[in-house]
């Protein structure tokens, strides 16, 4: 009896071993990304795999991992072997460079447009018919309103949301930092839950029906309408918002170790190609290639955008002042 069992166990172990050998006969890439890009990279990966097989005569399988941007960066620092990272904002990749020492500090200069193949912005998603009559940022601080946004400590989108609100308040109050702080404090008083990623917040708002307004990536808001139907939610575009630039890069230490640099670089370049840019537009991100951007112009609302360099002096500075331990966000949120 024990021998029979031993045979069976060894057969199972052996077949598991064979399976993993078979899996190694092709190149695999791991793309560690932020939360709402699931649908985008599903399309991109299929298209790129076809391209790469035709041009390099090599089969490539791209594996995906999604989560809040800071959480994902933390995982890469802790040893998640990402060939490429495609995160919500530059600071999280800076962290991988600084703490994990997995890529050079100047990584953002390696690809066009600050290594961001597309841009996006922050808009509001409200319930059908806009029952609370939300039109612009000042409406969000009305008492009794419930605003859904993820946790800026773990989510990239949440940090863009926060900075968009702060930037608006600066502009509306003649760059008065004190007034801006007051405005954002009031806004976060209206936030009942902080999910760890943008997608979690979307499900909280749409599926669980919590909150009057969701601060969301433009792409996430457009996707929610497409997936769930325009009879449930609608978009409100604020008078001014932030230009979000989610960057991409190869992780040098990993691609050199796994000998995947060539295919990883080709993968990121594909994002900038007309075909990649078209898929980007289709998935509601704003393409950077002018000819493709023109084709998708109609689907994006017109909104005045400011960028993080001009208003906050870049991500390093913004992170330090607002999101570091004991920073402004902590002070604002703990006071409640």
């Amino acid at each position: 009896m024990p021998i029979k069992w031993l045979n069976r166990i060894s057969a199972i172990v052996l077949s598991a071993g064979l399976l993993s050998i078979a899996a190694r006969a092709e190149v695999t890439l791991l793309n560690v990304s932020y939360d709402p890009t699931r649908e985008l990279y599903q399309d991109i990966n299929a298209a790129f795999a076809k391209r790469w097989e035709a041009s390099a005569k090599e089969k490539v399988v791209i594996k995906q991992s999604h989560g809040g941007a800071a959480k994902q960066a933390r995982a890469v620092i802790d040893g998640l072997e990402a060939d490429v990272v495609t995160l919500a904002l530059a600071y999280d990749i800076d962290e991988i460079a600084a703490r994990g020492k997995l890529l050079p500090k100047e990584w953002q200069k390696r690809l066009p447009h600050n290594s961001s193949p597309y841009t996006s912005t922050i808009v509001f998603l409200v319930r059908k018919g806009n029952p609370r009559a939300i039109k612009d940022w000042p409406d969000l601080v009305k008492p009794g309103l419930s605003v859904i946004t993820p946790n800026p400590k773990t989510s990239g989108g949440a940090r863009w949301n926060y900075l968009a609100a702060w930037g608006y308040a600066l502009k509306a109050n003649g760059n008065d930092e004190g007034k801006a702080r007051e405005f954002v404090t009031k806004l976060y008083k209206n936030v009942p839950i902080l999910d760890s990623g943008a997608r979690g917040s979307t499900t909280t708002f749409v599926e669980r029906g919590i909150g009057d307004v969701l601060l969301a990536w433009e792409n996430e808001a457009l996707l929610a309408i497409k997936e769930l139907g325009p009879e449930k939610v609608e978009i409100v575009v604020p008078s001014v918002s932030i230009l979000a630039e989610p960057p991409v890069t190869v992780v040098d230490k990993v691609v050199d170790k796994r000998k995947t640099r060539k295919v990883a670089e080709a993968y990121l370049e594909f994002l900038y190609s007309p075909e990649g840019q078209d898929l980007i537009g289709k998935n509601f991100y704003r393409p950077t290639l002018a000819e493709v951007a023109a084709r998708y112009e109609k689907q994006f609302p017109k909104v005045a955008l400011f960028n993080i360099e001009d208003v906050f002096g870049g991500w390093q500075k913004a992170q330090k002042t607002h999101f570091a331990d004991g920073g402004l966000f902590d002070q604002i949120y703990q006071k409640q």
Partner: peptide, 22 residues
């Protein structure tokens, strides 16, 4: 887990992912 699809996702983790993808 690291949430790599098809590699380090167990059934409970896969349920969450699918739910979050509409």
């Amino acid at each position: 887990s690291g949430h790599i699809r098809g590699e380090t996702n167990t059934l409970p983790l896969h349920v969450e992912i699918l739910y979050n993808e509409y």
